[in-house]
Design a protein around this nucleic acid. Structure first.
Lengths: 213, 213
DNA sequence: TGCAAATGTGAGGATTACTCATATTTTAGC
DNA sequence: GCTAAAATATGAGTAATCCTCACATTTGCA
């Protein structure tokens, strides 16, 4: 109840579906709810999304919505999880078999491009990534995801530079990763031309940090 | 009735005080409102801040609050403006008379430290910086502020490297600056020890970019 | 078939940002 | 000092919206 800001109690976290849909019927309806939410977020943003409207578009009652999602955030988070799962698979695959500096350069460059395109194309992802920045609990969850993603990069670095200080590598890779996310958010907030320049500059900067150090 | 919005751009605007307090009495009351809001934000965050509570703490009626602030965001933004004005003065002063690379290194390092300490110490600033990330209009305003701040850094770079491509300098400095803000947000979201490491790593990375290129 | 569990419903409770008709105080012109 | 206009103050009321809950219906299964 009283979320005093500094401490993040594990208790008041984000809820997963209040109840897992076990029957075919409800599984389909939950899908419709998520699809409706996704469409509404794409149109107006998650903040303007109304629970009543989600229910209406999904063709279910407001009560059914709350049967499976404890609150509004849970819907947004459920959508976000799909993107993060997909992303994580992509990141893992791209970085998995990097064996040398040149390979890292290519893989990282490709990842940045993929992410940038994804951000430009997916309004839902943009919205979610902005929205989670404000909500403390969501931010913590997203931070955990980001850390998990950065781990793939850390693994590559440790492979390429076995002698280096592990803590320093951790810090560098996590920083580079987080800055990548920040650059994406920034790039889609400015006009396309400047966004492209910023992403390119980030790529150069990040690679210098990852390869040269 | 007095919509002084003759030049409203297509994007929705944040309102300044709905009406400027012209009398001594109201000026004092507006101060009390801002102080109350600041205290409440520090305690619970701006999201949990209730307009009724602000009014009560300030010892004014809810109607008086809305006499001077058109909506909740306006109060948050009024508080944010004080910080940004202060910050800008500090940034300008620190970077104004940088004449060589060594000077830039010292000045930049000092700025980062100042900002980091400020973020650690000022719950209101932390809250505002997180909160504005979600709100489109607030984010645009903050982006404008950030650009203005980055200009000081750009000016220094142009002084130190007269021959360089101005657009590239712009991009680099703006990127470095934005990443600094992102690092601050990140650093206060993790434990202190990791935050310190991340800020130090950022400082090293940023200086390398600003000096070596 | 019958019963318990799962699912579905939507009117209504609760909260809260914000309005507005009205009352009071201050300023300014004389 | 007097008075009208402007500025300021008030708080009950409005509207929007998240979410609950008591009850209805459907499904899985012994």
């Amino acid at each position: 109840m009283d979320d005093t800001q500094a401490s993040v109690s594990p208790q008041e976290q984000i809820a997963s579906p209040r109840r897992a849909p076990s029957q075919q019927r409800s599984r389909e309806r939950v899908e419709r709810m998520l699809a409706a939410a996704s469409a509404l977020i794409a149109e107006q943003g998650s903040d303007a999304m109304r629970m009543g409207e989600v229910a209406e578009r999904a063709g279910v009652s407001i009560g059914s919505l709350y049967q499976f999602f404890p609150d509004k955030r849970a819907i947004v988070w459920a959508l976000a999880e799909r993107y993060t799962a997909e992303s994580q698979a992509c990141i893992s695959a791209t970085l998995a078999d990097v064996g040398d500096a040149e390979g890292l350069r290519d893989a990282f460059s490709e990842l940045v491009d993929i992410y940038y395109r994804l951000f430009l194309a997916e309004p839902v992802m943009r919205d979610i990534w902005s929205g989670t920045q404000a909500d403390k609990a969501l931010r913590q969850l997203e931070l955990a995801d980001s850390r998990a993603n950065a781990e793939f990069l850390i693994a590559v670095l440790k492979r390429l530079r076995p002698g280096a200080d592990p803590v320093a590598l951790d810090t560098t890779a996590f920083l580079v990763w987080q800055m990548g996310e920040a650059v994406m958010r920034l790039a889609i907030s400015v006009d396309r031309e400047e966004g492209d320049r910023l992403v390119a500059a980030y790529k150069r900067m990040a690679l210098r940090e990852l390869l040269d150090e």
